[in-house]
Write a protein that binds this DNA or RNA. Structure first.
Lengths: 352, 352
DNA sequence: CTGAAAGCGCTAACAC
DNA sequence: GTGTTAGCGCTTTCAG
């Protein structure tokens, strides 16, 4: 139990009166050793408080039992929930999770990946399909299996766990149109290096087009995926000659920020301006007014990505996974488009 | 740039025409090799696309350049922000962060720690001071330096980065008292294995005592640190004969849940019931009504913990850190205690 | 400043 | 089933 120095497998073997090899096997493939040996080894292990040396194991076996995931940010609850699910599930299979985040900077993603490769991981879980080519080169060079999460789109990557942002956005925008909105604004995230943002925009545009509408260029903005991004969008669009009647946001975080900005300015949601979100974070149901948004399969993404990674690591060949479901959640932040002149808003804004 | 198999330091040395040892030094202690050698090695490295093998390095040097942190949960934004700061800062010093969460189960914390030790980490960042004794035993046995975060209390651990939950709670409760409240309810987290929850309760009690008041046992509940916990507290306390006029919550998450529950029930905040939070997450300012809470030094905790860990790892001897600051943030969710009979509430509840 | 060489602790053939 | 042994790729003395 005590032992000043960390004891080694050799100590265990000696104490158990077996060879190094048997001791090793007893620990990693217990059903290939005689029960008696197993018992002796186990006893010695607990007596010495022995703990494997991961580095040595990794060096000799060429597997670290670690998988890395590189996320845009941990500050969006949607991501922390998925990461948690990922971690729990990997853990259950005996794998550790190395988490890193690049805060939406492609350069940093490469750096992180490089470090993580150097540290030694058996596989990668990436967010989205749009990555610098260096990412794929590194993965190939060290033949690291990788699974991509969140997005399932036209890209033909073998292992994607996610849903169609295009379709989800399409469904939501269709509802917006159905509510009578014609002057529709979009607060998206930055589309470069983010196929989810692009798919969302595309899905939105497709829905408008299906209704004979289109997205006015002056009613689209790219903002950070946080409260402030949504606030800024409200400021931008409400300063316009003819403000929109609805603001479609790329994330709930933006939408909640937008709602807050409206409250501060005395803009009523949804009477003066409807607002929609995306993700259905827990807060979406609580904010006032509750947010109309798209529920995405956050938890499942984490769990299924973990399962797939493990399968890949165990050498299974898997066919592409089916897309998961997303669903529009109707709450109060989306209302009918005002039929008449936007009198109250105009009043608030002082002059037209 | 290509190379089918991962190249080794030996390949680099050969290509550079130097010895293995020199190549190794060139990479880790560049200013102890002749510039010419350095250049040759660097060139070979980039030519081969060489990346160190972390496991081998760890095995030989007995340092992994990884630190692990074990958090209660990632679902509280206060934690994900701190973790992000921790990670960024460690990264800057060349360390990787291994993140794990135990969801407030002490048993799991031990398991996680064991795995993390086995994997090999150079140091630990723990949350709070209250941990199963196994945690300390393991840390000692593998002499892993550790720093404890968030809480600074009477416990005499050498490396704590945080603030006094007791004092923070004291300040907040003092304000509550000053606002005229006498019937005060506390929705705390589970106090076992959580000295932060205990300190908060103690601080609250101390403030009441200083005002000649005390916390009625029937007005204290332990709930999970999430929305639902706050909701439940509202249900419990409002069902009472004489409901409280204020609900002090252990986290903003609980407070926001409580506010939501009130809204659903038509209880006005703060007119019928005042509510306070703790943490000052970004949402606290946005919820309606905005939350009176305690701002805690989230970011600093991450950054300073990282710095301290690195210092320890580099062999510096540090004296205990000074406590960080917390500050009461006054917003609208805390109002004056109603002077008169709680007529409106009573009406809502049907009968007294 | 550099080269040679001895491990770090474990796994994975390979014989027995 | 079990013991033996040769590395895994790197760091780190120790001479020179």
């Amino acid at each position: 139990m005590s032992s000043e120095k960390r004891s080694t497998l050799e100590d265990v073997a000696r104490l158990a009166g077996v060879s190094l090899g048997s001791a090793s096997r007893a620990l990693s493939i217990p059903d290939q050793v005689k029960p008696a040996t197993l018992a002796k080894v186990r006893h010695a292990v607990s007596q010495l408080g022995y703990v494997r040396n991961g580095a040595a194991q990794a060096l000799a076996s060429r597997r670290t039992k670690m998988v890395a995931t590189i996320y845009p940010t941990l500050s969006n609850p949607i991501f922390s929930v998925a990461i948690h699910a990922l971690q729990q599930t990997l853990w259950r299979f005996g794998y550790q999770l190395l988490v890193a985040s690049h805060e939406y900077e492609p350069e940093r993603e490469i750096e992180l990946l490089r470090t993580v490769v150097e540290r030694g991981v058996d596989a990668l879980v990436l967010v989205g399909t749009d990555h610098p080519s260096e990412v794929f080169e590194l993965a190939r060079q060290y033949d690291l299996p990788y699974v991509m999460t969140w997005s399932i789109d036209g890209s033909h990557y073998p292992h994607c766990i996610g849903f169609s942002y295009h379709d989800a956005a399409f469904d939501l925008a269709s509802l917006v149109v159905k509510m009578g909105h014609r002057r529709i604004a979009l607060c998206n995230g930055f589309e470069s290096a983010n196929e989810r943002a692009r798919s969302r925009a595309a899905g939105t545009r497709a829905a408008l087009k299906a209704a004979g509408l289109s997205l006015d260029a002056s009613l689209v903005t790219e903002q950070p995926f946080n409260f402030e991004g949504g606030r800024e969008a409200v400021r931008i669009f409400l300063a316009q000659e003819t403000p929109p009647t609805v603001l479609i946001c790329g994330t709930d975080l933006q939408a909640i920020g937008a709602i807050d900005e409206c409250r501060r300015r005395g803009i009523r949601v949804p009477e003066d301006l409807s607002i929609t979100g995306f993700d259905d974070i827990e807060h979406a149901a609580i904010v006032v007014p509750p947010l109309t948004t798209v529920k995405v399969p956050t938890e499942d993404i984490g769990v299924l990505a973990a399962c797939r990674v493990v399968s890949l690591l165990e050498g299974e060949t898997l066919r592409p996974a089916a897309p998961l479901e997303s669903r529009v959640i109707v709450r109060e932040s989306l209302g009918r488009a005002p039929e008449v002149a936007r009198s109250s808003l105009d009043r608030l804004r002082g002059q037209t």
